[in-house]
Design a protein around this nucleic acid. Structure first.
Length: 216
DNA sequence: TCTAAGATGACCT
DNA sequence: GGTCATCTTAGAC
């Protein structure tokens, strides 16, 4: 699918839903470099993790639950959950409804609304610290329980995932990978099951990724 | 009804 | 690098 059929504005193209109708492992690396907008704030995604239905570390492993309902919903929507009773974490739902596949958004680089993000986090906080973790990212973008299940493909939606202007997602990763030759793959962080699966992708040169990066 | 675990982050040493 | 805050959910009894 090319530019026709999806919305376009100053910030770039809203992604077509078909983009997400694949496994999380396929979608995850292609999310790097895309922009996540929420109202006046936006970040460029620099770190993600994939979670699949046959993955013991995934919330979808045990099947649908009230809390994980959104993860089994249509692709291109957001699955938001509370972590450790304190933080919010945001996932992009992938594959067809009922599958339970999603990509955790782990870190981002502030693009617009940096002052507002800093205000939400801590006014004196360094820019690179604003979104360098899944909980931090949600805090900076003011994403919470009310955003569970929202559609990221909606052109007029306050929360939306877009490809930067000039990028054609129809070309696949090669279409927008030029700035991301330094993408590295590692094991996932903070989980106790299926720890060896190399399903974490990040922009190695970015100072905005999570502080700790395991080898492999 | 109770208990343990958890896809984290901040703070302290 | 280690510890702890904090609370929701699932599972055991």
């Amino acid at each position: 699918m090319r530019s026709s059929g999806r919305g376009s504005d100053r910030s770039g193209d809203v992604l077509p839903r078909s983009f997400f109708d694949r496994s999380a492992v396929e979608v995850a690396p292609e999310l790097l470099g895309l922009w996540l907008y929420h109202g006046p704030t936006a970040v460029r995604i620099v770190e993600v993790e994939a979670y699949e239905p046959d993955d013991p570390a995934s919330h979808s492993f045990i099947g649908p639950r009230p809390r994980t309902k959104s993860m089994f919903g249509p692709p291109g929507h957001l699955y938001v959950y509370r972590s450790y009773g304190i933080h919010w974490c945001a996932n992009v739902v992938c594959s067809r409804p009922g599958v339970g596949s999603a990509v955790l958004l782990r870190a981002g680089e502030p693009i617009t609304g940096e002052a507002l993000m800093a205000e939400r986090r801590s006014p004196m906080m360094a820019t690179r610290m604003l979104c360098s973790g899944p909980g931090k990212l949600c805090a900076a973008l003011a994403i919470g329980a009310t955003h569970d299940g929202v559609d990221l493909c909606g052109r007029g939606s306050a929360l939306r995932l877009v490809a930067p202007a000039g990028v054609d997602t129809a070309r696949g990763p090669a279409g927008w990978a030029p700035g991301h030759r330094d993408v590295v793959v590692t094991r996932r962080i903070g989980i106790s099951k299926a720890v060896d699966r190399p399903w974490r992708w990040l922009v190695a040169s970015s100072p905005h990724v999570s502080p700790r990066t395991p080898r492999g």
